[in-house]
């Protein structure tokens, strides 16, 4: 079998037309997912069963099911529910972009909340005791001691999740969105050249991942200044 480079030269610019949408999916769901994750994590470590249990159930559901299934449930399932169709959130679920954002956000939120919890648990108890002994309140300790240290501890795992989320955005193509993967699939349907097109697509994702990885590495080093002798 031959490898047709002209096909690639033709296809790459077309695929890149979807990069904006891929980025929107990534950034919007990463930001919303992080906000959600902070809330879920706080519920989880609150020490109050009526907050911690719902958080644990939520995490269990979203880590326990494939993200593709979650996207399908949101996109195909929710519109069947009358109360959703009649509520103010209906425009969100009528739109495949909205559905993809909801599913990706809920999914990444579950994972990131556990990553953040790991960071919070990793903060040395002695440091918090020193804060207590100096008269800092629970809230002051959380803001000035726990959070900054936990964020630095959680960063490598969090970066991993953002990179994983980039790849998950490709699943949005299954619900008609023309992100990079969606466009590539359309081109394949027209050219019958899955090999060339999907390899090109894979390489684009790899380049994006490399850029993400480098930027996250910079942030890690910047926030980790205090760890270097």
């Amino acid at each position: 079998m031959s490898f047709d480079f002209t096909l690639i030269i033709d296809a790459v610019p077309k695929i890149l037309l979807g990069i904006g949408l891929t980025f929107q999916l990534l950034v919007v769901s990463a930001v919303l997912g992080l906000v959600l994750a902070i809330g879920i994590m706080l519920m989880r470590i609150s020490g109050k069963w009526y907050l911690s249990w719902p958080a644990q159930i939520y995490i269990y559901i979203f880590r326990g099911t494939p993200i593709l299934v979650q996207i399908f449930i949101v996109y195909y399932g929710f519109p069947q529910l009358e109360f959703i169709r009649e509520s103010f959130i209906w425009p969100l679920f009528r739109d495949p972009f909205g559905c993809a954002i909801v599913a990706l956000t809920l999914n990444t939120g579950a994972y990131v909340s556990e990553i953040l919890r790991g960071g919070v648990m990793g903060v040395d108890r002695g440091i918090l005791e020193a804060g207590t002994a100096l008269g800092l309140s629970v809230r002051q300790r959380f803001i000035h001691l726990t959070s900054p240290i936990a964020i630095r501890l959680a960063l490598p795992a969090y970066g991993n999740d953002v990179i994983s989320l980039l790849k998950s955005t490709a699943l949005a193509s299954t619900i008609t969105l023309a992100d990079m993967t969606g466009i590539a699939r359309t081109i394949v349907a027209q050219t019958f050249a899955p090999y060339e097109i999907f390899i090109s697509l894979a390489i684009i994702y790899m380049i994006l991942t490399w850029i993400l990885q480098k930027s996250l590495g910079r942030v890690e080093r910047h926030l980790g200044r205090y760890m270097q002798k």
């Binding site: 002695g126 005791e129 804060g131 002994a133 008269g135 001691l145 900054p148």
Partner: peptide
């Protein structure tokens, strides 16, 4: 209180370690 394991705030400079509780408390 002074602890066996010092328990300085690792993410702050020495000066900030000394200023934090003064400012907050």
């Amino acid at each position: 209180m002074v602890f066996q394991s010092f328990n300085l705030f690792p993410h702050m400079t020495i000066l900030k370690n000394l200023m934090l509780a003064q400012r907050l408390v």
